[in-house]
Computed example of a mutant assay.
Amino acid sequence: MATSAILAGPTHRTVETNGIRMHVAEQGEGPLVLLCHGFPESWYSWRHQLAALAAAGFHAVAPDMRGYGRTDRPEAIDQYTLLHLVGDMVGLLDALGAETAVIAGHDWGAPVAWHAALLRPDRFRGVIGLSVPYLPRGQVHPTRTVPEADDALFYQRYFQAPGVAEANLERDVHLTLKLSLFNASGDAPIPDASPAAEGHVLMIPRDRGFVPAGIGAETIPLPPWLTEADVDVYAGEFARTGFRGGLNWYRNIDRNWDLLAPFEDARVTVPALFIAGDRDVVLAFRGIGAVLSNLSAAVPRLRETVILAGCGHWTQQERPEEVSAAMIGFLRQL
């Protein structure tokens, strides 16, 4: 790949996959690496890795995932299961003319990546999970096990009722994005770490919602890894699309549990890498400590777990150089 092409940044196109039109940003030539973003993000969350992977000799492709950005947003809630999302990635390989790829995912993109590797190891020869480890299927519907109190409920439960979270998040899209990006970052104040708070992070007050009224975006500081222009990119997309597509992923958590019954106790058998920040709120979720302790049993070819000191949830944006270096090192081993 010519240096001038790498420096020019990613190119964009729309492809057909699994019955939807999917927008992708891509950069570089060589072995294919798919980059799956999470909530509330877009392909743009991988902007640093697109350039780094291209420079290292890889073809990096970051789609707007189903329901996001310039990709189609099916109306029906049940069109956002993990089987649909993995199917989108298999179809994307076909659209790109690739037999296999390494797949990486951050936040909600991580379960997509892990399950792509679980269900189709013939197509995904390696997997990189950021922030969210591989979560084996539990014993009961996931929404039955999340924290809830008289005055607050876990954010995943708050997201379940169609229209409720949309109204709150869309009241001021720029504020929602800036608040989310700062509050879950390693630059935000350290949350309560007392035993009483264990497993009770991201609790949403029933009377205020995810984004409280009465605060302005100008009161939220920008961490050093984020610019107002970056926030504007995200806000511009969600102002146009709304949040329903991304929220519908959460509304299929229990449906995913039902659909994945045949794969209970199945292991991810391809080579894997896990990366997270030690200040990532996900690592404070109930039960995640045990998941991490047993990750190599569920993912027997786990090559490495990289924990970045002082890093929050937005792993590949907060620590772009370290994340890119870890990814490239893993990819070169393959």
Rank of each mutant, 00 (worst) to 15 (best):
T3H: 11
S4L: 13
A5Y: 07
G9R: 04
P10H: 07
T11G: 12
R13H: 07
V15C: 05
V15L: 15
T17Y: 01
I20M: 02
H23R: 14
L35V: 04
G38K: 03
F39N: 02
S42W: 10
S45N: 02
W46D: 08
L50H: 12
L53T: 11
A54Q: 05
R66S: 09
D72R: 08
A76R: 15
Y80A: 04
T81E: 04
T81N: 08
L83T: 10
G87W: 11
G91K: 01
L93T: 10
T100C: 07
I103C: 09
G105V: 05
G126S: 04
V127L: 02
L135V: 14
G138Q: 13
D150I: 04
Y155W: 14
N168P: 09
N168M: 06
H174Q: 10
A188D: 13
P189S: 12
I190K: 13
P191K: 10
S194L: 06
G199Q: 12
G199S: 10
H200K: 14
H200D: 05
L202E: 11
R208L: 14
R208F: 00
R208P: 07
I215Q: 14
I215A: 06
W225V: 06
D230L: 08
T241W: 07
G242R: 07
R244W: 02
G245H: 00
L259K: 04
V270A: 08
A276N: 10
D280I: 03
V282D: 00
V282Q: 02
G289V: 01
V299T: 14
R301N: 07
L302T: 00
R303F: 00
E304K: 14
E321N: 04
A326V: 12
M327G: 02
L334W: 12
